[in-house]
Design a binder for these strands. Structure first.
Length: 620
RNA sequence: GGUCCGGUAGCUCAGCUGGAUAGAGCACCAGCCUUCUAAGCUGGGGGUCAUUGGUUCGAAUCCAAUCCGGAUCACCA
């Protein structure tokens, strides 16, 4: 069988709302639709009725059309319809070689030559699966730390999720701005500052040798210890709990400090700047180690005034109202929610005030079509309220707001609480994973032929890869439980597994003297005469799915789809590797076919994992 | 109590716009390294898809009710 001029090359279908990659899978759907239209011109058949699946391995064929949905509409028995449809598709398209009907399912086999053409056209396509630019500007905000404590394991889920989604959206044709909103003001910062003033004796990161974010975090914990103690004392002195919490001296001091800060008191301002500087230095080290970057930084200290201004305008417009104590509120009762405070009686702003300002600022800065907030699901209500308030105030940014909500990372004993010292620190976790990858490599005798420098880099790649994969492989909206006592496995459904499969491919290519991305001309003369073995076919079928998987990861806001897909691809490759030799292939045709498969598989693995920020080494 | 999310193998999770015998990984058992890297491969045991009812040719998937777990409903951020 000769090569067919590929009828499909890289392109898209355009429907009213979506752009769909023109994979063979999607072409099959299309072909079925037009076949039905041709065979039954008088019957209107909705596109949603056409269901195409991958054919189950126990049957022959590649793609399967489910016939039942048409039975009633066309008043035909499924098998009769299948025969007519199959016959038409085989005779009138270039795609299908044969068909078979098994109890209500029409199994279609794509011609081997079409598969060969698919490989020849895509094996070295670096951007395989990506979509062309579509003039859609998206901001993804993630990380968004408070400046009163270091990053912990739960933040890492947020950071990796936001970073991965940015990359995925970019690859699917969006213009993406990666934003980090630093929550650098508010009562929580004042708590660290008060405790530091009273107990640190002027300690700095330099003088103490403690990383800046950790140092500030230590005094945040200290504040809470003092506060708890004072509340206890007040209760012992006869106050009820609520009053005690309100009147604890250290809390009053923190509140006074916040007012001073908002009034621009120079002494408070200097301390605030100094301590935030320490924290930023610490964060920078952590972000760098994790390979995380941002395009745009926002600071709530810059946006809360805009928020206040919006509140004042809302008050003038009559959308908001004032209570006796001068505090300003919005009434959301008719939307099934409650009254919500937007500005305190003393004029200081609350969480949502600054969020309003930031939302508007982001929108105005970049003329966004979409503004994605990666924030834990405990804030679902808050985000709902934010969007609603913006809408009521008539802000155009309201419609762009999208909350990418994810479940919290919990310990077997429950939530991580910095006050109770149960947090798993981000820096510690990275170090632990790097250590674990070293231990495993040494145990397996995998260190031969590497310099110490190469090993350090490799352990970084493996350890960090495992961590990212672990946090991204679960559907974001589900909460996950992490047991720090059981360290993360490097076997099974992990990045290490994929990295290992990739190094095996690299090893094959080295042996064959072939680069990772050979030139198109290398397989130009390839002719398929032999047919395709089942394992080879399985690889090709999975490679063919990638554009659809990437598109789904983008539209569902779910990077775990890439984890699942790539793991399956690596799994199939490992089985393929076991049954088919490349260096000792039966003949040159087989060698070439398998080389194309393997080159493309490695490329797709690098692409998919690259979007998640996971590197694949060439040797390990 | 209101709203939202979840409940699939011992554990961690896929599958959820209804389709063929419900899948992986870990753990457990048995095999496979003179042959491209065994961080791998092959096989095995393990399931009332929380429960009940409904919708239909067909339900883990859709609908309703119930049970269990979590989040949230702050002048904290």
């Amino acid at each position: 069988m000769g090569n067919l001029a590929p009828p499909f090359f890289y392109n898209y279908f355009y429907t009213k709302y979506h752009r769909i990659p023109m994979t063979l899978f999607n072409q099959t759907k299309h072909a079925v639709a037009s076949a039905l239209k041709h065979l039954f011109p008088d019957t209107e058949i909705a596109a949603s009725m056409i269901q195409v699946n991958l054919t189950k391995p126990e049957f022959t064929g590649d793609y399967t059309v489910v016939l039942f949905p048409f039975v009633k509409l066309l008043k035909m028995k499924p098998d009769a319809l299948g025969a007519q449809l199959g016959e038409y598709l085989v005779n009138n398209t270039e795609l299908f070689g044969e068909y078979a009907i098994v109890s209500g399912f029409l199994n279609l086999a794509i011609k081997d030559g079409v598969w060969a053409g698919f490989l020849q056209n895509n094996f070295n396509n670096r951007t395989y699966g990506e979509q062309t630019a579509k003039d859609n500007r998206v901001m993804v905000e993630y990380s968004s730390p408070n400046t009163n404590k270091p990053l912990h394991f739960g933040h890492m889920r947020n950071i990796f999720l936001g970073s991965a989604m940015s990359q995925i959206l970019k690859a699917t044709g969006n213009e993406v701005v990666k934003a980090n909103l630093i929550n650098d003001r508010g009562i929580h910062i004042c708590k660290s500052m008060i405790a530091w003033q009273q107990y640190a004796n002027g300690a700095t990161p330099e003088s103490s040798g403690i990383k800046g974010d950790h140092l500030v975090g230590d005094y945040y914990v200290k504040f809470n210890d003092i506060y708890k103690e004072q509340v206890k004392e007040l209760i012992a002195a006869g106050k009820d709990e609520k009053t005690a919490e309100k009147e604890a001296p250290v809390m009053l001091e923190a509140q006074a400090m916040l007012r001073k800060w908002e009034a621009g008191d120079p002494e408070v301002y200097d301390l605030w700047k100094k301590m935030n500087g320490w924290v930023y230095d610490g964060f920078e080290v952590t972000y760098k180690q994790m390979g995380i970057t941002f395009d745009k930084w926002y600071y709530e200290s810059d946006t809360y005034l805009l928020g206040k201004q919006m509140v004042m305008e809302g008050l003038e417009k009559g959308v908001l109202f004032k209570k006796e104590d001068e505090s300003i509120w919005i009434d959301l009762k008719e939307d099934g929610l409650d009254e919500k405070l937007l500005l305190r009686g003393d004029g200081t702003s609350v969480y949502i005030t600054q969020d309003m300002g930031t939302a508007k600022l982001k929108y105005d800065d970049f003329k966004l079509n979409q503004s994605i907030y990666v924030i834990a699901d405990e804030q679902n209500y808050h985000m709902q309220v934010l969007k609603l308030i913006l809408k009521k105030l008539g802000e155009p940014c309201a419609d762009a707001v999208y909350h990418l909500s994810y479940g919290m990372v919990e310990l077997p004993t429950g939530r991580m609480k910095s006050r109770e010292g149960t947090v798993v620190d981000a820096d510690d976790m990275v170090a632990e994973m790097v250590r674990l990858s070293r231990e495993q490599a040494e145990e397996n005798g995998k260190t031969e032929g590497f310099t110490e420098e190469e090993l350090v880099k490799l352990y970084d790649t493996v350890g960090l890869g495992a961590l990212k994969f672990y946090l991204l492989r679960v559907d974001p909206k589900k909460k996950m439980i992490f047991d720090p006592k059981e360290s993360i496995d490097l076997h099974g459904f992990t990045a290490t597994f994929i990295q290992y499969a990739h190094t095996r491919i690299c090893s094959i290519l080295r042996k064959e003297g072939m680069p990772l991305m050979p030139d198109t001309s290398v397989f130009q003369a390839f002719q398929l005469t032999d047919g395709i073995a089942p394992m080879e076919k399985k690889m090709i079928l999975q490679l063919e799915q990638y554009p659809n998987v990437l598109a789904a990861a983008a539209s569902e806001y779910n990077p775990s789809e890439l984890c699942n897909y790539t793991f399956q691809l690596a799994q199939t490759f490992n089985s393929f590797y076991d049954v088919h030799s490349i260096s000792k292939a039966e003949n040159d045709e087989k060698k070439q076919l398998r080389l194309m498969i393997v080159v493309m598989a490695a490329s797709v693995m690098r692409h998919a994992m690259g979007l998640l920020g996971i590197a694949l080494p060439e040797k390990m």
